[in-house]
């Protein structure tokens, strides 16, 4: 479905980003695996792709630093010759009740989860405008739609990503660059492993499908949004949450 396309996926060393990278590679894309700290995990993703006959590189960059983002985009274009798909997936959590959340915890999450999306989007726009085509897929979260106690910073960032998705979609539509968001619900990853059993049980009770989602469930929607199957879809947020928020 993505033969010959070049995809840059931020935060692709594990979790949802990793699943998207592997899925895109299986479908013929050349993949740039961005990571911030975990080089070994990123290398494992690259190895898994190349061992299966695909092409991949890993690139270290902090998505909240403009210079690092610019260098990353340059490296992708120099290595693979184009850049067709950007998946803004990199994200962190610093959960706490508002009463106890420090300014630094708020800023850090906004920097990575929201400003990072802006900088990466800005970074690839020039290349995609030249190509007169492109796909940008932003990984938001269902809590960006519903709100969630203990996550004021994360929810603000993820709700911001939905607004940014709509604006980017409108600005770039005339250049055939389609921009959509995915809002995953409760997906089994390192991020959700941090929750207690009690929290997990409580969340399950809120999910009509009554099971956790898998990273692959999100990756399949990301594949759809990167492929020609979604040529008439832009500015949308697709929830992949087992029906948790309707």
């Amino acid at each position: 479905m993505l033969n010959g396309k070049v995809a840059l996926i931020t935060g692709a060393s594990r979790g949802i980003g990793r699943a998207i990278a592997l899925n895109y590679a299986r479908n013929g894309a050349k993949v740039a695996v961005n990571y911030a700290g975990n080089e070994e995990k990123a290398q494992q993703v690259v190895n898994e792709i190349t061992q299966n006959g695909g092409q991949a590189i890993k690139i270290k960059a902090n998505v909240s630093k403009d210079a690092e983002v610019k260098a990353m985009v340059k490296e992708v274009v120099q290595t693979f010759g184009s850049l067709d798909i950007l998946v803004n997936n990199a994200g962190i959590t610093r959960d706490n009740l508002i009463m106890r959340m420090s300014e630094a915890d708020f800023d850090e999450v906004i920097d990575i989860n929201l400003k990072g999306v802006f900088l990466c989007t800005k970074g690839v726009t020039r290349q995609m405008m030249k190509q007169k085509s492109g796909r940008i897929i932003n990984v938001s979260s269902v809590v960006g739609v519903s709100g969630n106690p203990g996550q004021a910073n994360y929810v603000s960032a993820k709700a911001g990503v939905i607004g940014l998705t709509k604006t980017t979609a409108k600005e770039l539509a005339m250049r055939n660059i389609l921009v959509n968001a995915i809002a995953p619900g409760f997906i089994e990853t390192d991020m959700t492993d941090q929750l207690t059993d009690e929290q997990k049980e409580q969340m399950l009770s809120l999910i009509p499908l009554h099971k956790l989602g898998q990273a692959e469930d999100v990756a399949n929607v990301a594949l759809f949004l990167a492929s020609e199957q979604s040529n008439y879809v832009t500015g949308q947020t697709i929830q992949v949450d087992g029906g948790m928020v309707m």
Partner: peptide, 8 residues
């Protein structure tokens, strides 16, 4: 957007 592209 045309002007941005022209500048590019």
């Amino acid at each position: 957007l045309d002007v941005v592209e022209l500048v590019m």
